[in-house]
Simulated scan of single mutants.
Amino acid sequence: MGMKIQSLELIYYDLENDTFPSLVYSNLAGVPIPYRYDIKGKDVIITTDLGGGAKMTGKISEDGNTFSGGWRPNPGKESSGNVAYDFIGTRIK
């Protein structure tokens, strides 16, 4: 679409809750977007409350070279800025 997207995500480990909270600063949003990562082995769940909330459920491959999953808005919170989609990512070496 010719639009340049820039973002910076700061992630840290929360020992008390055994999760990885993060903030994403993006030129697409006027405020930092909070996320929470929950990683158990090869399973990854990322959630956000922004825009009514959404959840990403994904899996890291056994060899660690791919990551796939899908984002889903919380029920009843679908909107133009909060849509369902699936993805596959590949590590580039």
Results as ranks from 00 to 15, higher is better:
1 M>E: 12
1 M>T: 14
1 M>C: 10
2 G>W: 14
2 G>N: 13
3 M>Y: 06
4 K>W: 07
4 K>M: 15
4 K>C: 07
4 K>G: 07
5 I>W: 05
6 Q>H: 15
9 E>R: 15
13 Y>Q: 15
14 D>G: 03
15 L>A: 15
15 L>H: 12
15 L>R: 13
16 E>K: 11
18 D>R: 06
18 D>S: 06
19 T>D: 04
20 F>A: 06
21 P>S: 04
24 V>N: 05
24 V>C: 09
25 Y>Q: 13
26 S>H: 08
27 N>S: 04
27 N>P: 00
27 N>L: 01
27 N>A: 03
29 A>P: 01
29 A>E: 13
31 V>C: 10
31 V>L: 14
31 V>Q: 12
33 I>Q: 08
34 P>K: 13
34 P>I: 08
35 Y>A: 02
36 R>D: 03
37 Y>G: 00
37 Y>I: 05
40 K>I: 15
40 K>Y: 09
42 K>T: 12
46 I>T: 08
46 I>F: 07
48 T>W: 02
48 T>S: 05
48 T>R: 01
50 L>C: 04
51 G>N: 11
51 G>P: 00
52 G>M: 02
54 A>Q: 00
54 A>P: 00
55 K>H: 01
56 M>T: 09
57 T>W: 08
58 G>E: 04
59 K>D: 02
60 I>K: 03
60 I>L: 13
61 S>W: 08
61 S>N: 09
63 D>C: 11
64 G>E: 07
64 G>D: 09
64 G>S: 08
65 N>G: 05
67 F>S: 01
67 F>C: 00
68 S>L: 10
71 W>N: 02
72 R>V: 05
72 R>S: 06
73 P>Q: 06
75 P>A: 11
76 G>T: 10
78 E>Y: 06
78 E>S: 11
79 S>R: 00
79 S>T: 05
80 S>G: 12
80 S>P: 02
82 N>R: 08
82 N>H: 07
84 A>W: 04
85 Y>Q: 09
86 D>M: 10
86 D>H: 13
87 F>Y: 12
87 F>L: 07
88 I>E: 12
89 G>Y: 09
90 T>H: 15
92 I>G: 13
